[in-house]
Design a protein around this nucleic acid. Structure first.
Lengths: 107, 107
DNA sequence: TTTATATATTCCTTGACAGGAATATTCCAT
DNA sequence: ATGGAATATTCCTGTCAAGGAATATATAAA
């Protein structure tokens, strides 16, 4: 997840959403110079977010599905927070209160 | 998204998935000391991921739905990458090739 | 075999950020 | 009013990561 925290890398991922691209193309479209793009792609690659296929001179990068699927699953685990109106604040307040009275009752 | 990049903060968010919690409780369950927890919560709060409700002495933190919804939407925009078998590598290779012959034809 | 193109790597510097320790603040209880 | 809990803030320090410039590597082209 920290690989996606860097803004330029996030942009790269969004670029690659529309299909594979070459290092140079990414650099062009994002207005970055080539070395930084290579470095960022290296990070994305080591995070498993991206994979590379060498074609002659160039290297074509494309997204790997798995990490996105995992992220999707992770986000889904929060669904009930907005699906049902999931507040639990009232419940929690009572919980707190009962804890306090417990510790008062048995000093 | 960079707010979630920090491992402890990610853990906090996962903790809060099960309901609101107090600063002290978060510190206990994650084995962190209180000042760091407050600092991380501040970051999460400024990122809009978390909101606070003061109750007497304590501050109860809970998740806000919106950022998670947005993240969900973002991830969904990548669905076709694994829904349909979305490779586009072949297409892209031909694209590359035609570009090259173009630049050769008009020197 | 030399030259050019595409990409990766290294070195350096700078800025941001996390953790630790100490302190400030706020509220409750006595 | 005073002491004590719960939380926030500040200061300091070390670490790490990003960007720039230069260079290395590999492949194609001449």
């Amino acid at each position: 997840m920290s690989a996606l925290a860097e803004p330029n890398r996030l942009h790269m991922v969004e670029l690659l959403r529309d299909g594979p691209l070459t290092v140079g193309e990414i650099a062009d479209r994002l207005g970055l110079n080539q070395p930084q793009v290579s470095k960022h792609l290296r990070v994305l690659s080591e995070a498993g977010i991206v994979e590379v296929q060498p074609i002659a001179n160039r290297r074509i990068y494309k997204l790997r599905p798995q990490p996105l699927q995992e992220l999707d699953a992770w986000v889904k685990s929060f669904r009930r927070i907005w699906d049902e109106s999931f507040d639990r604040l009232d419940a929690y307040l009572q919980e707190l209160q009962s804890q306090e009275s417990n510790s008062k009752d048995k000093p």
